[in-house]
Every structure is written in C-alpha cells, then in structure tokens.
C-alpha cells in the first residue's frame, strides 16, 4: 500500500473488529506497533492515563499476556470461553496526513460479550491512531471510551 485511501482506513477498522470477534488474536497483535498503547479510560473525558486509574492501559507486553492467558489450561474465568461481537458505525476519518503517513479514525460501536447465560451490551467509541509503516497500516494508539465507563461492571474479559 502506498498512501491509504479513506476506504482503506475504514476497512482497517472493520477488519480489526472482525479479528477480535473471530478470536484471531495473534493476527490482531500484529496490527500494533511495538511501542503502542491500548487505553480504556475510567472517567468521562479522562485526560491522564497514568496518574489516575484507567480500566486498561496496555502496552505490547500486556496485550500479549492477555492473549496468551486466553489460551491457558488453567484460565478459570475462560472455562468456558467468552465470545464477543462488535457492531460498528461507519468510521469517521478525523485526520489524514499523507506526508507523515499518520491517520486518525473515530468509530462509534456497540459491543456484546457473552459467557454461559450472561450477556452484556456496551456502547463505546474508539479512536484509532494509525501509521503507515513499510506499506502496512499499524495501530500506534487506540482509545476506547465506554459510554458508561463510570458504572459498576461485572467481568469484561475481551478486547473492545
């Protein structure tokens, strides 16, 4: 890929969600740069990821750890396994800088997670910061804001 089109960016966001729904986690890990972060704030409009609590603020090591844990024999909260399902609104392209190869998308989505007889529905917004590296789009930062991030939740086990 030389410079991605708007459609390429939108397809990327959809494809990422599909990987999660399909459980293709190793492929999903490859979408990220080595120094990227996945951030899910705890507070509405939270600015600081580090000095107040977040729901998630995961570097490459932590994301890999989650994926490896899913596969474990003694991962009790994943026996039986959780399944998830994303329904995405068409992403907005908020920023395109072809010179630097940097792009930002904004995607509203609904997320369903299920295990045994339980099913939860969350409304969320994802902000992807993408970079074109050696002809491939990679995620440098993904921020997921839950509409009700300050509510009391039970377990949320998969990636949104």
């Amino acid at each position: 890929m030389k410079a991605p089109t708007r459609d390429d960016l939108i397809d990327f966001v959809y494809e990422e969600a599909r990987m999660l729904d399909d459980g293709r986690f190793d492929e999903w890990l490859d979408l990220w740069t080595h120094d990227s972060y996945y951030w899910m704030p705890l507070d509405y409009n939270q600015e600081d990821a580090k000095h107040v609590t977040s729901l998630l603020h995961e570097d490459a090591f932590m994301r890999k750890l989650r994926v490896e844990r899913f596969k474990g024999e003694r991962t009790f909260s994943q026996k039986p396994k959780t399944r998830c399902h994303h329904v995405l609104n068409r992403p907005f392209i908020d920023h395109m800088d072809e010179e630097k190869g940097e792009y930002v998308t904004h995607t509203a989505f609904h997320y369903v997670e299920t295990r045994l007889d339980d099913q939860i529905l969350l409304a969320a917004t994802a902000r992807h910061e993408l970079k074109l590296i050696e002809g491939k789009l990679k995620i440098t930062h993904k921020r997921v804001d839950l509409l009700n991030s300050d509510a009391a939740f039970g377990n949320i086990q998969m990636f949104l």
Binding site: L42, D43, Q46, H51, T53, L55, D150, A151, A152, F153
Partner: peptide
C-alpha cells in the same frame, strides 16, 4: 486520585 474502580460481584 480520581474516581474509584467500581466492580460488581
């Protein structure tokens, strides 16, 4: 420092 985590059990 900020709001608490809230976790229903």
């Amino acid at each position: 420092a900020g709001p608490p985590l809230r976790y229903m059990h």
